[in-house]
């Protein structure tokens, strides 16, 4: 119990930026879904099980067009393929996390990943509980906000356009933090340059998968250089 409380206390500050982002985006998701005629329970159900922000926004469209499970399945694989990256880079960190491991994997969103890949649990805190609480807190924010959004539905009147920039800002900040923490900038530069090139070549709707392939390829080619410098 003591162990859990100290881990919860240590985890909370790290999740504050994500809380801000999730509360806004979760509410927006809830409002959008309710505007398509779905009761707020549906928003909660989706945020609990799917728990993948950008995909849930795509899902709102899927749920309001013709029923096509196969295309929904493929679409989801494409939109969420970046999770494969996160999983590979968390293999080591999630070793020995025991019973909490399935939940840690299930809750590995962009934002949870962005916190956990760049943060180590403080020295006096149980490592596994820390990972668990960061993941759990983030999902609590997301589910609560979706429910609130679904309930408020059409009552929303203030102009929220531009609010989704919260996520961009969060990723930029993490990018800077990672940049400052490393002497080796080749992986970060590769990520940006390859993604921009793929965005130009393949366009905004199709660039994620090629970006991932070419990033992996480029980093494979650079392996010797990077490992020699390290």
């Amino acid at each position: 119990m003591r162990k859990n409380l100290s881990a919860l206390k240590a985890a909370f500050p790290y999740t504050i930026p994500v809380m801000a982002g999730y509360l806004f985006l979760g509410m927006v998701f809830g409002v959008m879904l309710s505007s398509k005629g779905y009761h707020f329970g549906w928003a909660v159900l989706m945020s609990f099980f799917i728990y993948a922000g950008s995909m849930q926004f795509v899902a709102v469209n899927l749920l309001s067009s013709a029923f096509n499970p196969l295309s929904a399945f493929l679409m989801t694989l494409v939109v969420n393929a970046r999770h494969l990256f996160y999983g590979i880079s968390m293999l080591k960190k999630y070793n020995g996390t025991g019973l909490k491991k399935p939940y840690l994997i299930m809750g590995l969103t962009d934002e949870t990943y962005s916190i956990l890949c760049s943060t180590e649990a403080p020295k006096d805190v149980d490592r596994v509980s820390f990972l668990f609480f960061v993941t759990l807190l983030n999902q609590i924010y997301w589910v609560t906000a979706s429910m609130a959004g679904g309930l408020l539905g059409s009552f929303f009147t203030f102009d929220t356009s531009g609010i989704d920039f919260v996520m961009t800002a969060l990723f930029v900040v993490i990018f800077i933090n990672q940049w400052k923490s490393q002497k080796e900038h080749l992986p970060a530069v590769t990520g940006v340059v390859v993604s921009v090139l793929c965005l130009i070549i393949f366009g905004p709707d199709n660039f994620i998968i090629p970006s991932m392939v070419f990033i992996a390829l480029a980093l494979t080619i650079f392996r010797r250089t990077i490992e020699r410098r390290a």
Binding site: F85, S89, S114, F175, G191, V192, I208, S211, I215, A216
Partner: peptide, 10 residues
């Protein structure tokens, strides 16, 4: 990958 992935996310 974490460093490259954050660039991709931005």
């Amino acid at each position: 990958l974490p460093y490259a992935a954050m660039g991709l996310l931005v």
